[in-house]
């Protein structure tokens, strides 16, 4: 249970960063931290006590395997996270070129 709690603490750390940081890049880093805490969580829920890598070995019939589905989910989510992060970094560079700052307090044309 303690592992799940640590996972949740990591999630909250990321959330705290997203809410309090002023620098655009630090916000993206915090989002990534949240993302990775989730990947950890997904990998944990597929764990089976004493399980091995889920590659079926025909010789060993009594083997216990961990659940491969969450691992597939994590892989897919990593790819998606990569795309999101790349998109965000590209936008940040563009923002920096237009505003000459990365401070989120000075980037506020849109309001109301």
């Amino acid at each position: 249970m303690i592992v799940y709690l640590l996972c949740f603490v990591l999630f909250l750390t990321g959330l705290y960063g997203v809410i309090t940081r002023r620098n655009l890049v630090k916000i993206v880093i915090s989002l990534s931290i949240m993302e990775f805490s989730l990947f950890l969580f997904l990998a944990l829920i597929g764990y089976v006590e004493g399980g091995t890598v889920p590659i079926v070995d025909p010789a060993d019939t009594g083997a216990v395997y961990v659940d491969p589905l969450p691992q597939a989910m994590v892989l897919t989510a990593i790819v998606i996270g990569l795309a999101t992060t790349a998109m965000l970094m590209a936008v940040i560079i563009r923002v920096y070129r237009k505003y000459k700052t990365m401070d989120i307090r000075e980037i506020k044309n849109l309001r109301g």
């Binding site: 970094m89 590209a90 560079i93 563009r94 920096y96 070129r97």
Partner: peptide, 9 residues
């Protein structure tokens, strides 16, 4: 793309 952005900067 990020490299090109950086060089333009």
């Amino acid at each position: 793309a990020l490299l090109i952005f950086k060089e333009e900067l």
